[in-house]
């Protein structure tokens, strides 16, 4: 749980300026939505916060610390990709626990967290399936790794707007999650 601050963040690819000096303050537990036409730099901004893109200039702060040169895994963030980026060879539960397993959490704790998250996401009956065995809606419901309690949560998925029902579901989920853990900008 932390606030996120962007100061004059610029991203330049060779001769194209993708992000032209964005200033942004996201308070702790705040729910932020980035809206704009395609190609305006929403995803790039999120990717820079997550650490997947280097920034050309400016500063990104998470919880007051400048994280410009901090690798993604040490930024303690969670991210949902537009196409969900689920590991196709793992079951839902294995997908969800991958990060925790890499961090060598005790097995019992991983199980408790997965069970809790599965109940919260309403997907208890799906945890042993593989991504291909799920529908699009089911995928978007659990693609969010809410159980990791990150400091910051990025989502480039369009799930809040895709369908009315999943929208309200996801919205409420996001709000619940917001209360529970971290600020969360959507694009």
């Amino acid at each position: 749980m932390a606030d996120v601050t962007l100061r004059k963040v610029i991203k330049r690819y060779d001769d194209v300026e993708a992000v032209r000096g964005i200033d942004l303050d996201i308070a702790d537990h705040e729910f932020v939505v980035l809206v704009g036409p395609s190609g305006c730099g929403k995803s790039t901004t999120l990717r820079m916060i997550a650490g997947l893109e280097d920034i050309t200039d400016g500063d990104i702060m998470i919880g007051g610390d400048v994280v410009n040169d901090v690798p993604p895994k040490d930024r303690d963030i969670a991210m949902v990709f537009q196409n969900y980026a689920l590991y196709p060879h793992m079951t839902v539960a294995e997908n969800m626990s991958f990060g925790l397993r890499l961090k060598r959490y005790p097995k019992a704790e991983i199980k408790t967290r997965i069970d809790e998250a599965a109940r919260m996401l309403d997907i208890v009956e799906l945890v042993d399936r593989k991504p291909k065995q799920l529908s699009g809606g089911q995928r978007s419901r659990w693609a969010a790794p809410l159980f990791e309690t990150p400091r910051f949560f990025c989502s480039t998925s369009r799930c809040p707007t895709s369908t009315p029902s999943s929208g309200s579901r996801c919205g409420s989920k996001s709000r619940r999650c917001t209360r529970r853990s971290a600020p969360r900008p959507f694009t």
């Binding site: 993604p72 590991y87 060879h89 990060g99």
Partner: peptide, 27 residues
Amino acid sequence: IPKELDEAAIIDGASWFQTLTRIFIPV
């Protein structure tokens, strides 16, 4: 293999070697 998959692995905290052995080789 979609780029997002290794980005997801990076965010999950996987090293290059872990990305190779746990994601790329099985996929």
